[in-house]
Each structure stands twice: as structure tokens, then as C-alpha cells.
Design a binder for these strands. Structure first.
Lengths: 201, 201
DNA sequence: CCTTTGTTTAACAATTTTGTCAAACAATAC
DNA sequence: GTATTGTTTGACAAAATTGTTAAACAAAGG
């Protein structure tokens, strides 16, 4: 093994991840990625065979990380509100790193479903965990801590409030004439705002 | 003028709109569009000069339509809650037609900002209308009909709850094993759910 | 030092996609 | 009928992008 010892492969993958998921340039060419990583374009093919393989690898890793963390929280033994709080934090962390992840899923998932099918195989026990969480939501409604509704609607509301502000950053930067730093501040503040919107407390 | 009388141009534009904004296939080639419209690919260039021009035209028209309708509602004389109700309806209608519009904006707006700048020139009086709406939100908070918060957060919450479920349709279709029809039903039900989430009533 | 293994490079081939052009065609006006 | 105008087509050119290959190179082991 050479002196670089797997560093180049890592470098390319991380650069691709940054370009695709952080900067949202999903049309970036192999040349763009190679340039950004400061390596010869052929290396990209050497390590990953094709642009497609690299793209899917990056995509899949980010998605799996997010899903795993979400399911960890969903499956944990914790009071409901604390669970939601943790979810908000997980989303905040993951979408800060990969703000375009949700956009990518939305765009690809129903374009070539068969191709991306494998990326969405259920996590072990995932279905079960989801059902339990919906039941938990129902119990909270019964207790009166959150508004009466279909549990699935609370679920979608929660994810909408968490994810959308990351997806729509460019829109609000323009609409409210904010800087990126200003928007980041807003996103942090929103964490508690989400909870107060969803919980009657 | 020929017998078809502008029909072909319309046909191409509407097909492009469907493919780009309704089906979300934003990588569709000129050939894809021509095929879907059942016309020769050259016609696309004849009428629109380039793929780019067509793409931007479709994009701009849909965006302008949505923005115009939103601002009509914002600027209307109406009780606050009714205004929000109307906004929800406008979004529902427009995003049913162009569910990928928000995704497109998010993806393009900070890729080549100078290029898309012109698509986002403020509507006449837009800034003013926006400010007034934020003030209205503040008044409602003072009255206690909605939760105390930064007005901009209420604004983002509102748009998140309206837009995200359209952006994320493919995700929830999979996650909850729904059909498109089932998801449509859910979206309709959500209209009132959004209001009850945001208003203390 | 020479062989082996893995890495990097430049040159090239293949493919895909966009864009152009000149000629054919159709309807109407004269 | 012929000229004019706008429409449609197929063939072609140009550009951009991906993928392949063979050779140069570097490190480490024997």
C-alpha cells in the first residue's frame, strides 16, 4: 500500500459529500468533484468505478446515518417530550451537515424507484418502532399534552417544522434579506419554537 | 400562420411544465420533453431557442403565479385567520399542480444566484406587504390567538406546514405505505390540521 | 536492486446531449 | 398557379461528460 494509505479515496468521497449534500450541487460533474478535491479525475473512476456509484454511496451513507439516529431516538426509553426534543436536535445536527439530503430523497425516490429501492430497505425493527411511536403520539393526545389529531399528522408536522427550514434556506435568505449567519441563529432559536408550537405545555 | 396556430408551442411548454414541476424530472432532456409532447425535438429549439430558456420560462411562470396569488391574499382586507386559511388553500392548489416548485427553488436559488436573480425580483409593494403581514402576526400574538414567538417563526412554521408535505410526498408514501390517492386524502385533511396547529382557537 | 503492489497520470474512446441548418411541407394571400 | 409565411423534419455539427487504457511512478518486501 502506498504512503497515502486510503486518504485519497476518503478525500474524494468527502468532497463529493460536501458538494452533493452540503452545497446541493447535485449536477456536479466528475470533473467538478475532482477539481474540488484537487485530484485527477481518473482517480474518481479508479476508486468508485463510476459517478453513479460514488453518488449513491454518498447518498446512502448520509441517509443511513440520519435514519439510524432517528430510530435510536424513537426506540429509546424516554419521556415523549424529551424524545421529540432529541429528534429536533438530531435533525438539526444532521441537516446542518447535509441540508440537501431531504431534497435529494424527494427528487430521487420517485424518479427511478427500483434503482433507489435498496437505499430504503427498512431498518431492523423499523416498522415496529414507527408504530410504537405513533401509539405514543396517540397517548399524548389522550393525555392532552398535544393537540387532538391523527397521529400521522403530528408526525408530519414535526418533520415539516424540523426539515423545511433547512430545505428552504435560500428562499428565506432572500425573502427576509438575511445573512447565512443570521439564518443559522434563527434555526437555533427555532428548536424551542418547534416544541412550543407542537406542545400545549 | 399555419393551421396549428400556436398550439405546438403551448403543447411543448405545458409538457415541459408537467415533466419539470409536476413529475419533478428536472434532468429531463430535450428529447424526453419532445417525446412526451409527441413532437420533433427541433421544434423545441425553434420555439424556445434552448433548453435553458424553456426551463426558465416554465419555472418563472409557475413561481410568478404562486407569488402573485400569495401576495394577493397577504394584501387583502380580511381577518387574520381567514387570510391564513386562504393561504393554505392557495398553496394546496398551486403545489398540487407543481409539487416540485419549492424543491426547484431551493435547488437553484443558491447555485447560480446571478442567473436566477431576475426570477425573484420583488413584486410591486411586496416588501411592504410582507412587513405588514409580520405586523399582523405580532398583533395576533398580542391578542393571544397564536403562540407568542418571533413573527418570522410563525411565518416559517406556516410555510413549513403547508409546503413540506408536498415536497416530501415520496418519503411518506414509502414510510407509511400509502397510495397516491391515500396521500392526497391526507393532504386535504391536513388543511384544517395546519390551522389547529397554529391557532390556539 | 529488482519485484510486487497499489497509485496516479495523460491520452483516448464512447456516449449523451444540445444546438444548427437546409430542405420539405402546408396553408393562405395574391 | 405561384409567392409568401410560418411549421416541421432529418441530417449533421459541436460540446460536454463519462468511462477506459496503458504507461509512469512510488513505496516496501524480499
Amino acid at each position: 500500500m502506498s504512503v497515502k494509505d486510503g486518504k485519497t479515496e476518503q478525500l474524494i468521497k468527502e468532497t463529493a459529500k460536501r458538494i452533493f449534500l452540503t452545497e446541493g450541487k447535485m449536477l456536479a460533474t466528475t470533473q467538478d468533484i475532482a477539481d474540488a478535491a484537487g485530484v485527477n479525475r481518473t482517480l474518481l473512476h479508479y476508486y468508485f468505478r463510476s459517478r453513479d456509484v460514488l453518488f449513491n454511496m454518498v447518498f446512502k451513507e448520509a441517509l443511513t446515518k440520519l435514519r439510524t439516529r432517528v430510530h435510536e431516538v424513537l426506540g429509546s426509553e424516554m419521556p415523549f417530550k424529551q424524545k421529540v426534543e432529541n429528534l429536533v436536535n438530531v435533525f438539526y445536527e444532521e441537516l446542518t451537515e447535509s441540508p440537501y439530503l431531504e431534497t435529494f430523497i424527494a427528487l430521487h425516490l420517485n424518479q427511478e424507484p427500483e434503482k433507489y429501492e435498496e437505499l430504503f430497505i427498512a431498518l431492523p425493527g423499523g416498522r415496529e418502532r414507527m408504530k410504537n411511536f405513533l401509539k405514543e403520539i396517540q397517548r399524548e393526545m389522550d393525555k392532552g399534552t398535544i393537540a387532538e389529531n391523527k397521529p400521522v399528522n403530528f408526525f408530519i408536522n414535526l418533520f415539516a417544522l424540523m426539515a423545511y427550514p433547512f430545505v428552504a434556506r435560500p428562499i428565506y435568505l432572500k425573502m427576509f434579506d438575511l445573512t447565512n449567519a443570521g439564518y443559522n441563529k434563527l434555526l437555533t432559536e427555532r428548536k424551542s419554537s418547534i416544541l412550543s408550537t407542537l406542545f400545549k405545555n
